[in-house]
């Protein structure tokens, strides 16, 4: 249940859900579990160009700061504003708590990402 099959994953523990040329980006259930109670999210402004593999924001729990890395390049077309007031949504359901919506500039980059099964294996090995 933890990792939806129709999402793709990074080794930095982000997920991306693609529909056509746009995609939603969030962090994985494993990431929220490792972080613990999330209390702060810093997201880019609308119109920011995300670059695959580069940091686009941060997520903070009470005791840790974690960078967010873009799974793919693209222009930010929407931000999940509700996370600013209620970042605990990420703990409650990391798969639904999307952070940014992007317009993919190079959909080919998705091929380099992990499938749900591969990500699950990766997490198991990492532990």
């Amino acid at each position: 249940m933890a990792y939806p099959k129709d999402y793709k994953y990074t080794k930095e523990h982000e997920w991306i859900q693609v529909s056509g040329k746009t995609a939603l980006v969030g962090i994985t259930d494993h990431a929220q579990q490792s972080l613990g109670d999330i209390v702060f999210v810093e997201l880019p402004k609308m119109g920011t160009e995300l670059v695959a593999g580069k940091s686009f924001g941060t997520v903070e729990s009470v005791k840790a700061v974690s960078e967010l890395y873009a799974p793919a390049s693209g222009n930010v077309t929407a931000i999940n504003q509700s996370l600013s007031a209620a970042p605990e949504q990420i703990n409650q359901d990391a798969n639904k708590a999307w952070m940014v919506k992007i317009e993919l500039s190079n959909p080919d980059q998705l091929k380099g990402l992990l499938s749900a099964d591969d990500y699950e294996k990766y997490v198991a090995e990492e532990n």
């Binding site: 613990g36 109670d37 729990s61």
Partner: peptide, 11 residues
């Protein structure tokens, strides 16, 4: 132990 996630966690 830094926290006990099974009983609710730090907060």
């Amino acid at each position: 132990p830094v926290e006990y996630p099974t009983s609710g966690g730090l907060m």
